[in-house]
Design a protein around this nucleic acid. Structure first.
Lengths: 135, 135
DNA sequence: TGAAATAGGACTGAAATAGTCTGATATAAA
DNA sequence: TTTATATCAGACTATTTCAGTCCTATTTCA
């Protein structure tokens, strides 16, 4: 279906929110949740995931929250996608797990390598787009 | 998930098959089905869809089958995607149905228009890729 | 008339997504 | 030391989408 997941959308919105309210203070999941009307639990999960990928830094406890680890013009779309989307390849056989040999169609259908080229081009777009551009 | 559907993959394979075996004769769904080991019914459906979008021409009855309506270097990836994928936009709010007003997040979250730009870039890749390149 | 082909709608099972629920851990402040 | 407010984390559920199947009708050639 060629669609970014809702989670990725929310991740972008969350990162944007943190970037915009960057007075040095932490931004809480609750703030983002109510600011954008997204389920609190969902936003939390996404922020935790972004933390794991070192895109945001978390602070626990009272007065805790999240800050960006880098400036918005140093964070690219591809990093967020890779952190959130379990699989961002345009076909299954391009993933880490799906090897060439998994293809059951006519000894690997041969549309794979041209599509790989398309994949690379799409990734290059994601690499070029920074968070700055979505603020 | 940012993935092309299996149907689109099969559509590409089918179009490729017809393009390669272009001795002027029709290619039947059965041929493609057994050649690529794809379910016959599925291939049929896909070819019917491609027919509706005038990418292939169908001939009914005995000796029937399919031919391309244009030469492979005149058919682009975007045309096949548009014919098969019900929704090829990277977010929901970009579709024909999903208007700006449908967005429930903070008066249209504002990541929409920068993502629209990304969408256009991706489409431009699909427009540039012809069937010739996948043969 | 029969065989071989496309046309097309209804249906099902499986997989992915979106979202919820519950409990644990950490920390600042009263 | 207690309490309120945060993050952290895993299990769970409902919904949607996708892939594939089934069945029937229609067309065409020999």
């Amino acid at each position: 279906m060629l669609k970014l997941s809702k989670k990725t959308e929310y991740a972008l919105m969350a990162v944007k929110y943190i970037a915009m309210n960057n007075g040095g203070n932490c931004i809480t999941a609750k703030e983002i949740s109510s600011g954008y009307k997204i389920s609190f639990e969902l936003v939390s999960k996404i922020l935790q995931q972004l933390t794991k990928f070192n895109l945001v830094q978390s602070f626990q406890g009272v007065k805790g929250g999240y800050t960006l680890t880098r400036s918005p013009n140093e964070i690219t779309l591809i990093e967020i996608i890779k952190a959130i989307e379990p699989n961002y390849y345009i076909t299954d056989c391009m993933g880490d797990t799906g090897s060439v040999n998994d293809c059951e169609h006519f000894d690997c259908c041969m549309i794979r390598s041209p599509l790989m080229k398309v994949q690379k081009q799409i990734e290059s777009i994601f690499k070029q787009t920074t968070i700055n551009e979505i603020i």
